[in-house]
């Protein structure tokens, strides 16, 4: 308790050397780094799929589209524990798909960072899709038509006109995904449990801390880190959005 106090006062009093390192315990650092890693890779892998799904939803019609639409947005409204449980049933060690993932590819998701990344990706996916879909719907189809009369094929039009004009939406979708992945709790703890260094991201670490008799200070420090990270993501999104809008002439 005493040690914790001194760390806190160090935080407030401004000891300059090794400021950040000194602010957090190694355990807390692990959680922060893990969180950032999970959030980054979850967003990185889900982004192309999010663009594809957004395109399907905004630009195509096919039988069963309503159901597809519903399934895409389902993780947003389902209790996250349910999402985690569904992941466990499907991708767990004895899950419908999970057993083959292990047998064929040697991929194990349970208790691993990869599993935490999957959980974060699934939960943040609807938010990403939604942001990208909105930006896609805002793209003037007349411009795409003009591009085709100039000799560009559909695919060419997508990469030379549609995608650049969607950039603000893709960027804000990505930052939203990172922010929500940083905060993911329910699905992660249900699916891949709470393993230090593997799946214990910031929210899980805070949860653990509140169960420890002297964990208040740790919870408080991680809360501060959470706020700083979330705020940075929002500010960055704002800045990048303005930059890109100027770049593509929508200022």
């Amino acid at each position: 308790m005493n040690v914790e106090r001194s760390r806190l006062s160090g935080f407030a009093g401004g000891r300059n050397d090794e400021f950040a390192m000194d602010m957090l315990t190694p355990e807390e650092w692990t959680a922060v780094q893990l969180s950032l890693r999970v959030a980054f890779w979850a967003t990185f892998w889900s982004l192309p799929f999010a663009v594809l799904v957004a395109w399907l939803l905004a630009r195509t019609s096919f039988p069963g589209k309503g159901l597809f639409d519903g399934i895409v947005y389902l993780p947003l409204v389902l209790p996250k524990v349910v999402v985690g449980y569904l992941l466990l049933v499907t991708l767990g060690a004895r899950g419908y798909l999970g057993q083959y993932l292990d047998a064929w590819f040697g991929i194990r998701l349970i208790f691993t960072t990869a599993g935490a990344t999957v959980a974060a990706a699934v939960v943040s996916f609807p938010l990403t899709v939604n942001a990208i879909r909105l930006s896609l719907e805002a793209v003037d189809r007349g411009l795409e038509m003009a591009a085709r009369t100039l000799g560009a094929s559909r695919l060419d039009v997508f990469f030379s006109v549609t995608l650049p004009l969607m950039l603000p939406g893709i960027l804000s979708g990505a930052l939203l995904a990172i922010a929500s992945a940083l905060g993911e709790f329910g699905a992660t703890i249900t699916f891949v449990s709470n393993v230090e260094g593997q799946t214990r991201t910031i929210p899980l670490a805070i949860y653990s801390a509140t169960h420890m008799p002297d964990g208040d200070a740790m919870a408080l420090r991680l809360t501060v880190v959470s706020i700083v990270l979330a705020l940075s993501a929002l500010l960055l999104a704002n800045l990048a959005d303005r930059r890109i809008r100027t770049m593509i002439g929508r200022a």
Partner: peptide, 8 residues
């Protein structure tokens, strides 16, 4: 009629 230049 509305030119449709690529804004980007």
């Amino acid at each position: 009629q509305d030119a449709r230049l690529f804004p980007h």
